[in-house]
Design a protein around this nucleic acid. Structure first.
Lengths: 198, 198
DNA sequence: TTTATATTACACAGACCTGTGTAATAGGGC
DNA sequence: GCCCTATTACACAGGTCTGTGTAATATAAA
């Protein structure tokens, strides 16, 4: 009666490989034959685990949808660490932008399920920022969370094109200013300039 | 001896149509047959004007590389108007992100010429920001120009996924704060808080 | 061993793609 | 009229892609 007979090996291997190839080379650019050949299995086996390439694409994106794990660091450190982590990922040779943005870009807005999971991912990241900002007592946590998300996605898009990890540092610098302006004590002394934005 | 016999009609029509289809549906998703059929010409005619699809792709991206025209508005208005223009484009139904970012995302970083023109475009926009910031006497115009570019690309990526023109307003609000922090007088009174960013 | 399941090799259908070859045709300038 | 160029229709080569059908084979549990 074991619900999982501990035999998810093949399906996981397929997913891992599809993830790597889809992400690095693009979804349309990678055929199922290529994925199967890379693992060393037959195409038939792949289709025994996933009914179609679309199903594999969905599973790929679902696998990429990971929530940031809880941290015991201070909220402001968690926010700023985001940009340090980005910089590290930019420096890695296998970084190729945001898989959700890339999927929407290459599959088109018509693909409903892809857009849906991409929206869900972006919103979950925004809410993660927002909750931390609420803990910090920042002014307008909703708006500021959106702005931080813009900086994240902006640096990702810029790095995708330019291959320049400095984009993450620029985003962090901007985030620092925005946080300080919202009354969050960041590194140095606290300020409350509250520039009016409209 | 007229250098241009005023007969660029066909080539332009091909480019216009390729631009629209490539941008809206993706480059890989649109075949040359589709483009020719959309114009109502034969595929042979298309290949008489462009030697390959790659050439058409390059021409498409080159056509998208437009410099912002000179304006007599104040530099700060030019900067902030950028985000208003973005919001208007987001609201249009035919907006589908940045064509350069999309091209790099779907064609992969291996395609040298595509990446090259994408980098050139991003850098030209950053320099446009930078020159305006120099005119304004802003602190650290280089860094701030990069940050503004991040906000532009971030809002574009977010809108591509979410279809939400409010992303442009959020970017504008963030830009306003960053400008004020750099000592630029924006709408209300000037401030010089100068949050230290490292 | 027997039985059930997973996997394999391999061919193939049907579609789509880029790019070319060719001979007929249209249309404007002289 | 004549000539030149652009365009057309159309077939086709050669490639890739997704997805299926099938019969043989491995593997592991009973």
């Amino acid at each position: 009666m074991a619900p999982l007979p501990a035999k998810p090996a093949m399906k996981d291997r397929i997913l891992e490989t599809a993830d790597r190839l889809f992400y690095l080379q693009g979804i349309r650019a990678v055929g199922v034959d290529t994925i199967a050949a890379e693992i060393g299995i037959s195409k038939r086996t792949l289709y025994n685990h996933f009914p179609s390439k679309d199903a594999l694409i969905s599973a790929y994106l679902a696998r990429r949808f990971v929530q940031p794990r809880p941290s015991d660091k201070s909220p402001v450190d968690q926010i700023l660490d985001t940009f340090d982590a980005l910089e590290r990922r930019f420096a890695a040779r296998d970084f190729r932008g945001c898989p959700f943005v890339n999927a929407v870009a290459e599959l088109g807005g018509e693909d409903k399920s892809v857009r849906k999971i991409a929206i869900a991912f972006k919103e979950s990241r925004r809410l993660w920022f927002r909750d931390l900002l609420v803990q910090l007592g920042a002014a307008d946590p909703e708006g500021l969370a959106t702005q931080l998300a813009l900086l994240v996605d902006g640096s990702i898009a810029q790095d995708l094109v330019r291959n320049d990890p400095a984009m993450a540092r620029a985003a962090k610098a901007a985030a620092t200013v925005l946080l300080a302006n919202a009354g969050v004590q960041v590194g140095g002394a606290a300020q409350k300039p509250q520039v009016k934005t409209r």
